[in-house]
Amino acid sequence: MTEQKIRVLVAKPGLDGHDRGAKTVASILRDRGMEVIYTGLHQTPEMIAEAATQEDVDVVGLSILSGAHMELFPRVRAELVKRGMGHVLLVGGGIIPNDDMKKLEADGFAKLFGPGTRTDDIGVYIETEMKKRRAHSA
């Protein structure tokens, strides 16, 4: 049996224009064999949740470097839940202070990645989590 490809939505919520990290992560995850959809910039939480639903992804990765994460990250999660997508592996990254990371991880985010993270570590994390989830549901 060939293993099913992991489908990832990499998204940029809000007005933030810093997309170097999001695009780099998207490219490197794609090179690891995942199917990656990148939303482009300036997305609303509704647009992101809608794209995740349409594309039926397993993972949603959000990137913000503008400081608006405590407003926008929970709103993306709420919109996902509203669309029956609360099960996706929800991760995020950017300039996010440690205590905010803890709050988000207590509030439905699987993991937050800060500056200096190896993209390999993100890839391995997603693969490991997805393996666990698929084993669990098989």
């Binding site: 809000g14 007005l15 503008s66 400081g67 608006a68 405590m70 407003e71 926008l72």
Partner: peptide, 10 residues
């Protein structure tokens, strides 16, 4: 509406 959470941040 689109400014929510971003005012004065960066």
């Amino acid at each position: 509406e689109r400014s929510r959470g971003e005012v004065g941040q960066v």
